[in-house]
Simulated scan of single mutants.
Amino acid sequence: MAWFLVPAALVIGGSAMAFIMILAVIAILAWVAVPVLVAGTTAGLIAHNRRRHAALRRSGAAGMAPLGRRYPPPPPRPVPPPWPQARARFDRLRQEYAAYECDPMQVLRLPALADVTVPSTGRFVEAFAEAQALETDARPAQAHAAAFVAAVDRAERAWRAARDAAERIRLSGLSPAERGTVERVIKLLTTARDSDSDAERLTAYSMARSELAKLERAGVIHMPRTAQAALDAAGRGELPA
């Protein structure tokens, strides 16, 4: 039996040795291959990231502005209307206001527009005075011009509001007797304007002025000085009917 066990031991011993050698070879290959694989993977990831960032820069993806891109300039600030236009608008307003103040018939039909105790009329008179104080013959400095333009805007709005209020009020704030007197004065002025007879015209003006004086003394009508002067001149025959 001894002769049989020796060869078997050799065979078993040789197999173990071969197995150990195979393990050693595998360990050596793993020790060499793993760093190579890691290096290759790292290089691949770096290359992938570089390609991705380049694509993002080209496409302008959110969060990454393309190289060399410039943002648009902010929108310009609103510019107020030019000063010459504001002057022209204020001239038209002044003419419209003067036409009212110089016409006794308009004052009698819209008495609230001549009464500064009416809130809307008082606001207009203040706004008109402010614009008039800022008005200049030559173009002023930019700040002054802007203030004038704004004042003209306010005066125009106040004028429209005052006229609308006067149209609504008309003679509603007067007593029946006062309304009757105002209506009689309007008829007399209409007769004086339309009459072809100088005597009739002058008589109608004289009677209208007498009735109007009573209304003014009672505080019913606030006749502007310009309207009163026009009425006096017409009553003296200085102006054509």
Rank of each mutant, 00 (worst) to 15 (best):
S197V: 10
G63V: 02
H48N: 03
T117D: 11
R163N: 06
A218H: 10
R69V: 07
G237W: 06
V34Y: 10
R139G: 04
F90K: 02
S206I: 04
R163S: 09
P104N: 13
M64P: 06
H144M: 07
R201F: 10
A162I: 03
P224L: 05
T191G: 14
Q95H: 05
I12W: 06
A55H: 05
A9N: 09
V38H: 09
A204T: 14
V118F: 02
A229M: 15
T203K: 04
P80F: 04
S59Q: 13
E156M: 02
P82M: 03
L215E: 13
I221P: 09
D164W: 00
F148T: 03
G173F: 01
I26G: 03
A218F: 07
D137T: 07
L113K: 07
A131R: 02
L113N: 10
A61Y: 06
A129H: 11
R154K: 05
A165Q: 04
M207A: 15
S210H: 15
A33C: 13
L171G: 06
A9D: 07
V32S: 10
S120W: 03
S197P: 13
V220C: 08
L56C: 02
V125L: 12
P84F: 05
L10Q: 13
T42W: 11
A131T: 03
Y205P: 08
R77I: 00
A227C: 11
T203Y: 02
I20K: 01
Y100D: 13
P82A: 10
A62K: 12
